[in-house]
Nucleic acid binder design. Sequence first.
DNA 1: GGAACTATCTATAAAGA
DNA 2: TTCTTTATAGATAGTTC
Lengths: 176, 176
Amino acid sequence: MGRRKIEIKRIENKSSRQVTFSKRRNGLIDKARQLSILCESSVAVVVVSASGKLYDSSSGDDISKIIDRYEIQHADELRALDLEEKIQNYLPHKELLETVQSKLEEPNVDNVSVDSLISLEEQLETALSVSRARKAELMMEYIESLKEKEKLLREENQVLASQVTMTTISSALEAN
Amino acid sequence: MGRRKIEIKRIENKSSRQVTFSKRRNGLIDKARQLSILCESSVAVVVVSASGKLYDSSSGDDISKIIDRYEIQHADELRALDLEEKIQNYLPHKELLETVQSKLEEPNVDNVSVDSLISLEEQLETALSVSRARKAELMMEYIESLKEKEKLLREENQVLASQVTMTTISSALEAN
DNA sequence: GGAACTATCTATAAAGA
DNA sequence: TTCTTTATAGATAGTTC
């Protein structure tokens, strides 16, 4: 639906790719908005440009709610570590709290409650370090993907550089 | 773009709402696919229907990678820290410690160990949050530097590509 | 200055009622 | 399927950083 039909393949011209990206991204987000209103649903759209810039939108509900919903669905896939953690770490703490509290109500307190507190602290630390580790992991993954991209670019670069050399030499030879 | 114009508001008829949902959802996902191919980007779409059913699609990369990318971007904005904060909210352990302390302040208790526990915990928390923040900061800096490097490579690449074109054209001209 | 990105306009391909 | 409305290609101008 434009001046002419285009094939669905990477647009080679950088600036028209950029223009198309911006236009179609807006179009997509508007379609998402319409779907959400027309059919009372929630839609989240996340777009990452080639340059790594992030664009997101949501309609019908908060994007984090929609993503949470996605993560709940895929809980088995380790992505929902989040939820798993809540279940695995939060519950024992609750129990532990109750234990500590009940211990406190007993007459001869000290050692037991201090021990419980230490253990609570340790469990809490574990839970926190898991979520921290998850964040670090996400960042590391991202760093790896950037490094990979860099490597590919360097390779492409080298091919191009040798092409320049070759064509220059051959045209010099032809000149003689 | 149908037989007649429709207003963007909830479709009241249940069955046509259902039909529209299905058609537009597919259309949206296809548009996402096209955007990703045309502009070498990654697009994730998550749709939750009114009945709670989940539909998702991704193009250009795995949906979890795209969502990870979203979460990294919003790391400061609390989504990645989510759990950490939630745990801290669910477990007001500082208050608990204070409660314990006040309970223990009654006759014949080991005050010293509780005091040192509280102080230890506070110090630990401070140290951890500082080093955590510092680590995240360093990683973000690193990510920025990688992005910058990528940008430079892309530019260099483009220069080389145009050189190849130029020399090819000029040697073709010389041949005539 | 310059690269990256967005806005505007019109003709037309394509979505969808 | 039909056939109207809409999205968007292409070109270019403007904006932001």
